[in-house]
Design a protein around this nucleic acid. Structure first.
Lengths: 252, 252
DNA sequence: AGCCGGACTTGATCCTGGTCAAGGGATGAC
DNA sequence: GTCATCCCTTGACCAGGATCAAGTCCGGCT
């Protein structure tokens, strides 16, 4: 019988085509990532400036708050989180980063990272040196536009996260967004494995640990979802959407 | 004696150089807006694709949810808000838009606006047709980079807004950010006129109307700020920063 | 001037969600 | 295997903020 770690590891490995050496032009999640608007030839150009990171263990730091922006990262497999820690040691999780999503966009403004980025599960990221990416984008309008679109998507996600009102709404919205953001092999994921712990979810949703448990129990009792440890199954999509509130539901 | 409206109108008019016909290359707030990284010649090119809107009355819609993205707007004077209204008619204010800030970035992802944008005070906006802006940005790397930086700033602001924990922290953070975002004629605004009503602030901070009153009273009692109607004076910047929480304070 | 309506404050009461603590189950170290 | 630890759930209690309602001030309207 497989342990929780085994299950997560398995999920990460299969998300990744872990050992594959696909370039951007053939990347299985390229349609959600930077190559999203690119013709194969352009994607190949993008691939030239890209490194693939070594495998990162869970709990490893990718960037530290205060670091200079060197590169934009794209999650190839696994899950990472952006966190800020206050002086009492409380960790606030600003955002999770799932496969195909970009990391570092918030550092472009000042050139300095304002949060720590840490792996939640084992992960691999693609590394796009910032200056190279800039100059490539200035030569390939489609790349620039794709980059802007991903930026915009990111902003939309933050809007949705910020707007949810009650704790229950935030949880429902969170589950919906994870279901939509986890690598789509076809359609909506109605059954998926959460990469992160309850505590991490709580810190992201700005609720207490215990409250989160109770809320999950409530959602289950109402028949919207079934949750078994990290495994989530969405039973009633529409109901969940209504629970998230009309305001949250707009965002993909 | 001048009424509240008079005072706001006056502030807007002087922010704007209301009647001026400055191009982007000479815009008094250009260093915070799209021309931020541009040489004068490039700013002049940017100016060629720009329209200046007519004066908008308070309460007027600039874009409707569902509209196609036609243009990115930059606030030239006044204040606008992005709102979503749920089926019960509750208005959630996603964001306020102050002079030099861009509107419409969230619509780039799908090409469709997901929120209504409405003027809070009378306002003027600069209109940058989206396709023209794209093609100009692809020809001027500095413009592209400036655009990305503004995008990033926007995202940072959302991070800060989403992360604040208690209602008091959100209020303190909100006031700080407004002080920093309102047009800087030199340094930090330690005395400024809020463009929006209490109700609008409450809807933005996700607190009840009455609660907001009490919180403002509390901040005053603690000597951090003095508030008289729309006029805010920051008395103890550091204390206010501490009240906002370490997590919020990073963002400019 | 007098009236009305909207913006803001203040008070009383209720409930959501935080805090603290106990307990179970699985994981990992020895 | 045993033990310690971490993650999660559950319970009891408390507080921050919501809700509802009254009351004030101010500006606009007739």
């Amino acid at each position: 019988m497989s342990t929780r770690q085994d299950k997560i590891a398995e999920a990460v490995l299969q998300d990744a085509n872990w050992v594959s050496t696909h370039g951007c032009d053939q990347c299985p999640i390229g349609q959600y990532c930077l190559p999203l608007d690119l013709a194969p030839a352009q994607a190949a150009a993008l691939n030239k400036i890209r490194y693939l990171s070594r495998a990162l263990e869970a709990g490893q730091s990718l960037v530290h708050s205060g670091d200079r922006l060197q590169a934009i990262y794209a999650v190839r497999a696994g899950c990472l989180k952006s966190v800020r820690v206050d002086e009492e040691g409380n960790e606030q999780i600003i955002d999770f980063h799932l496969p195909s999503e970009l990391i570092g966009l918030d550092a472009i403004y000042s050139g300095i990272h304002t949060a720590d980025v840490v792996t939640v599960t084992m992960a691999k990221v693609c590394i796009f040196p910032y200056q190279a990416l800039l100059s490539l984008a200035s030569r390939h309008p489609d790349l620039m536009q794709g980059w802007l679109r991903l930026f915009s998507k990111n902003l939309l996600g933050q809007y949705a996260h910020g707007v949810d009102n009650t704790a229950d709404q935030r949880l429902a919205g969170f589950l919906l967004r994870i279901a939509l953001r986890l690598p789509q092999r076809g359609e909506l994921n109605e059954r998926f494995l959460l990469p992160m712990s309850r505590i991490e979810i709580a810190r992201h949703l700005r609720v207490a640990n215990g409250t989160l448990s109770r809320m999950i129990a409530r959602l289950q009792a109402q028949g919207m979802v079934r949750v078994d440890d990290r495994m989530v199954e969405i039973l009633d999509f529409d109901k969940l959407k209504r629970a998230a509130g009309a305001l949250a539901s707009v965002t993909l």
